[in-house]
């Protein structure tokens, strides 16, 4: 269970997250959607206590993150940016994290196997491809067998097999009664993976709903998303001008 209440964070004059309140419940995958720069990654960092909030608060399993007794055994997180040293092997990276929360060493090989990195575990992680780095991040998130999982764009860089693997993995974790909160830009992917949705725009809550509810009345979930966020898009591309005459 994740409970965010009036979560607010400013960076200079930018209000990245603006009085955001929502709950993420156990037992289903909750998608976290919003246009570029809407504050998804910032919200994830606020939940983990990596960035401090200017106002409001967020609790995970009833406690503030910094008050957790064994953080990695309670919350697993995959962040947007790489969070490992290029000179260290995947196995050493995971072994270090495991040691910090007294997680048995055997669990390291278990998660390496789970994400399919066993054969690359001894190599320097700096040489990993985008998708391999992402798999290492997923392994780190699963390391403590946590009841709450936060994943910021987990399918970023994964091959089609990997995308399907993540989808099935997240669903099965939720089915075990875990809280799974996952951000993504791929609406079609979220339509397949998530049951519930939290949609934000410019740091504000736009919808806290189910996939079924949001897509009702629109041709697709994508159309419903565009309708919902049309007012809140900040960074928008434009149609290329035709040069051939």
């Amino acid at each position: 269970m994740i409970e965010a209440r009036h979560l607010t964070r400013r960076y200079g004059s930018t209000v990245a997250v603006d009085a955001l309140s929502f709950d993420v419940r156990p037992g289903s995958v909750t998608g976290f959607l919003g246009p570029n720069g809407s504050g998804k990654s910032t919200t994830m960092r606020l939940i983990l206590g990596l960035d401090r909030c200017d106002a409001g608060q967020v609790r995970v399993g009833g406690r503030r993150y910094r008050d957790l007794r064994w953080p990695l055994r309670e919350v697993g997180a995959l962040l947007e940016a790489r969070a490992f040293h290029p000179g260290r092997s995947a196995r050493s990276h995971l072994a270090a994290l495991a040691a910090s929360n007294a997680i048995p060493r055997a669990r390291v090989d278990e998660v390496l196997d789970l994400v399919g990195l066993t054969s690359a575990a001894g190599r320097r992680a700096g040489k990993f491809s985008l998708g391999m780095g992402q798999r290492l991040g997923v392994a780190a998130a699963l390391l403590g067998d946590p009841a709450v999982l936060l994943l910021d764009e987990p399918v970023n860089g994964l091959d089609p097999e990997g995308v399907r693997w993540i989808r099935d993995l997240l669903k099965s974790l939720a089915a075990q009664g875990r809280t799974v909160f996952v951000s993504s830009h791929l609406i079609s992917e979220m339509a397949l993976t998530a049951e519930r949705l939290v949609v934000i725009g410019r740091g504000r809550l736009l919808a806290d709903t189910t996939v079924a509810e949001l897509s009702a009345g629109s041709p697709s979930l994508e159309d419903a998303f565009f309708r919902l966020t049309s007012e809140a898009v900040e960074y928008q591309g434009n149609q290329a001008k035709e040069t051939a005459s």
Binding site: L48, L79, A81, S100, N101
Partner: peptide, 16 residues
């Protein structure tokens, strides 16, 4: 190097 590589986030999440 924890900051350069981003490892600091994994470290601080493990030991807040």
């Amino acid at each position: 190097s924890e900051y350069t590589s981003g490892t600091i986030r994994a470290t601080v999440a493990a030991v807040p």
